[in-house]
């Protein structure tokens, strides 16, 4: 290792043109490669403590039962918590209290194995966000970013996941663009070449680690322009794996889906909850009180693709306000 502080000073020598080009090459490599993994932001978001404004599904009638259940889970979970090396580091930085506080309970819930215990003890949707039905617009992309409008407890960004085949490149930066045929309005543009494995999915988790109660609404709606074939899915908390903020442990990902064929013209599509169906026979209808996320999926067989998305919103409930 070089340390010039103890060496006699010498005049710096200018780099030759070739040496300068070499230096530029090294710095350029860092510019290209030093990028966070695509899912790192999502993983950080998942580690954040949940917001404290929680509406209990059972109202305020059974807080003692809930606290008792929480206490049991904490007793079980603290062992898991203390056994986890990451958790130990967190404890070392000042969060090692073993008192029964809401926050550690949720951290135990995030820790994997204990999550199902917590979910069983409290019921999968004992903690939930409840949309009041007053702010149906989820995102119109006019703000130019990938964050939905912060309404009714919806607090996560749009994320795009896609398979990594060399032949397929999907627009990965979710920056809204000026939409053709929309008189200057912005929309989200997603395009990709042939994908080989499973495809690409644009997803918005409403409030991960909670159930999102959208029963004040009657479905979802959006404007889009293709051509493309989209599987529009709404996922209940129970079909999402625990590691992504749901409560599912096996046979997960079975969203309630409707396939939509986009044309090459802007159109509004309306999907009442009742048209969204799960795979399989005799599957239950969507329970809009227990939502996790909304997805726009393009299967690999439907790639290449090129479509625009805009004005994603909830539909009013039939007969509602």
């Amino acid at each position: 290792m070089t340390n010039d502080s103890n060496q006699p000073r010498s005049l710096p020598v200018e780099l030759t043109t070739e040496e300068h080009a070499f230096k530029t090459e090294l710095l350029g490599a860092a510019e290209r490669l030093d990028r966070p993994p695509n899912d790192l932001a999502a993983r950080i978001a998942a580690r954040l403590p949940p917001p404290k404004q929680v509406h209990r599904a059972w109202g305020n009638k059974v807080p003692i039962l809930a606290l008792a259940a929480v206490g049991m889970v904490v007793c079980l979970g603290v062992g898991v918590w203390l056994g986890d090396s990451n958790a130990k580091r967190a404890a070392g930085s000042g969060t090692g209290s073993m008192s029964v506080q809401p926050e550690p309970v949720f951290r135990v819930a995030f820790a994997g194995a204990a999550a199902s215990a917590t979910a069983l003890a409290l019921g999968p949707c004992a903690q939930r966000y409840r949309a009041a039905g007053l702010a149906p617009l989820i995102d119109d992309f006019e703000d130019g970013d990938s964050t939905p409008l912060p309404s009714e407890g919806r607090f996560r960004d749009w994320f795009l996941f896609f398979d990594y085949d060399r032949e397929g490149q999907v627009a990965r930066t979710l920056v809204p663009e000026t939409a053709p045929g929309r008189e200057g309005g912005q929309a989200l543009h997603l395009a990709g070449k042939k994908l080989q494995d499973w495809g690409a999915v644009l997803e918005l988790s409403f409030a991960p680690y909670f159930c999102y109660d959208a029963s004040a609404y009657g479905g979802v709606t959006f404007r889009a322009r293709g051509p493309a074939r989209l599987s529009v899915g709404v996922r209940e908390n129970r079909v999402v794996p625990t590691k992504w903020g749901g409560t599912c442990e096996k046979d997960c990902y079975n969203a309630h889906v409707e396939v939509v064929e986009l044309t090459d013209r802007w159109q509004r599509y309306k999907l009442p909850w009742s048209v969204l169906r799960q795979r399989g026979y005799d599957m239950p209808p969507l329970d809009p009180a227990t939502l996790h996320s909304i997805q726009f999926l393009v299967h690999a067989e439907d790639t290449p693709f090129d479509f625009w998305l805009d004005d994603v919103a909830f539909l009013p409930r039939p007969g509602g306000k």
């Binding site: 404290k52 404004q53 702010a135 009714e152 407890g153």
Partner: peptide, 15 residues
């Protein structure tokens, strides 16, 4: 971010 009348201002600050 929480148009529920039962939610206090401090809860909104948390969000």
């Amino acid at each position: 971010c929480w148009p529920d009348p039962a939610t206090s201002a401090s809860e909104c600050e948390v969000a």
